[in-house]
Design a protein around this nucleic acid. Structure first.
Lengths: 199, 199, 199, 199
DNA sequence: AATGAATGAGCATTCATTCAT
DNA sequence: AATGAATGAATGCTCATTCAT
């Protein structure tokens, strides 16, 4: 008699389609037509499942943020010590292969720029950044605690590492040839290890 | 009887206007009308001085890259040692005040995202990043040489610092409240100092 | 074993929903989705009971016309003289309270404008206006006959009163604050009474 | 060197084009394309001279209101007595021929319905109605004063006449065949004359 | 009868670019 | 050099209607 809702499935398809187009065309040039085509759906249907194009973007931000956390948790499952967990984190975020998706990285860079001007995007972007920062502070704090050191400098250290990660995404997407191969994860590890040893 | 050309002046005014609008509206939403208004010029005049809107953007990228180098050179004028020059560089790029322009930072973030999809922008963006990276490698190399150390690891270290700087711009523009105040320049210095000491 | 059809009930619900939305949004902006929501029905169901949106409008015109006549007959039931019947009519159409529905009045105004351009609506609208005019001519004619006067001027008089009524609806819906409170029914009565006395 | 603005001229052309299309298609169906075509202009140009379609409508309301007053003043120029001026007014508003424009009447009816739902339209519509009502009260007041009568009942009388006029426009546009030919102006005159004589 | 997803044409609006003056 | 009007394609969004379930 009635028809089963399939909204969740469709919404996810649409968000994935935006991810794909945004990595190639940016947000503004990812037209509804283009996204619909990438999703294999009729254009009008996108506005049935999302009120505005901006809502698709916001959901994409949420999806990518969640994905990032999931990837860490998967890699950190077997990490026994604070240092191992920190390394797992840096590898999850900066390592190549193992589910690293250049499209997702490029889309994240575009999102970062949209967050500069779109309040709704900025809100969810900041939420994601805040969660990431809190996690990183926890990880660094555990490493410091194990060494019997003060937690005082943990906030700026986490901030600097976060910046390094975001910048690595930026440069990987916009100036790929200019960067050494696979520098990010090992270098981040070395820098933080030296700092923890010295501090 | 002909009046003297003021093209250079006008072009500069237009580029500055784009800088201003892009920080607030992004590139796509910085319409010719809006840029003209910000510059106090008639819309039609912009296409007299620039063939396309994209050309204004490319010139803006060049202008900002040049500005960044100038700021370093101004601050490094009195730096006598390699370490002093490196610190001057990090301060020039990450320090607050002293000519740090939030609008320019925001515009640079937007440019980074446009570089992902626009080949002409990517070209000049990579050129700027390449120059910055070369400068940074020089500075780091001099510090290592002074300590009698190998130059082997200089490329990834420069890359990591470059990433940290770009990421700091990103986060300063899109998630300002989330970051500790004035963390970037000191933390970058500490990390590189520890690394140079340990390496 | 088949359930009993409830088509008549559903059609009425849908028409009432259009009445409600049209008073607030007009006809064009009363979307099928909106009407369905106001009726508490699924959108698809509206096209099961009505072939097109226009058909709902036509049925609404008929419903309102019928309602108007019913209201007069209810109020005129106890009127013994021609003058009493005329007064009952004017009160039924122009009086406040007693079932006067501002939404119905507003909807009727909107219908009047749609009748300007939609032939199917104009047809039923004119039918309703014609019936109203005939009734009014009958009522006025009886008053004149009772006074032993000629029926000659009855048509323009009925037309003028009809116009006054329609205009009162218009102004009540679109410029409510501008009109004196409860002016319409008494003033119409006075004007027609003076005219019958003088004519 | 510079180009002379022609905005006033263009705006007027566009408003006239809306007047023409609205009489035939209503407001919602008067698409920008259609209005542009009626004005002989490119569609995009309409949004150069008006920010939104609604603004064109608002200007049309103002234009029609002004026109109505002008028509009265032209006809009343030679009226020496209060009664002559009142008759000139009724003739200006209800008389056929002499610049009576069926398209303007139909457009006014459509405007009246749009005023029900669009606040910006309602505002200017009410302003126009208010001005008309004030003028009518002045005219009626002068007639009463000349007869040495109280001005007490002037407000509802003006309101009733205003309603009659608006209703006459409505019926002339939506049910033309149903009304007697040229009934409105003479009948309005008779009704008000009887009333003034009797009151 | 009923549901809610799906379609696609149509809409107001935006905007880079052109051009007459 | 400069102005501001003009163009027309493109875009996000709306919506009556259809249809599989």
């Amino acid at each position: 008699m009635s028809r089963r809702p399939n909204t969740a499935q469709r919404r996810s398809e649409i968000v994935q389609a935006l991810l794909a187009t945004m990595a190639e065309y940016g947000y503004e040039k990812s037209t509804i037509q283009l996204i619909a085509q990438a999703a294999g759906l009729a254009p009008g249907l996108l506005h049935y499942h999302f009120k505005t194009k901006g809502e698709i973007l916001v959901e994409l931000v949420r999806t990518l943020a969640q994905l990032s956390l999931q990837r860490y948790h998967a890699l950190a499952a077997n990490a026994a010590t604070p240092d191992a967990r920190l390394h797992a984190y840096l590898h999850a975020r900066l390592g190549k292969g193992d589910g690293a998706d250049p499209r997702a990285v490029a889309a994240w860079v575009v999102i970062g720029a949209e967050a500069v001007r779109l309040p709704e995007v900025r809100a969810v972007y900041q939420e994601a950044i805040g969660a990431e920062k809190a996690l990183l502070e926890d990880l660094l704090g555990a490493c410091l605690a194990e060494r019997g050191k003060s937690l005082e400098g943990v906030a700026p250290l986490a901030a600097a590492l976060l910046a390094m990660m975001e910048g690595a995404f930026q440069l990987a997407s916009a100036a790929p040839g200019s960067m050494p191969d696979g520098y990010a994860a090992p270098m981040a590890r070395q820098l933080v290890d030296s700092h923890l040893a010295a501090g």
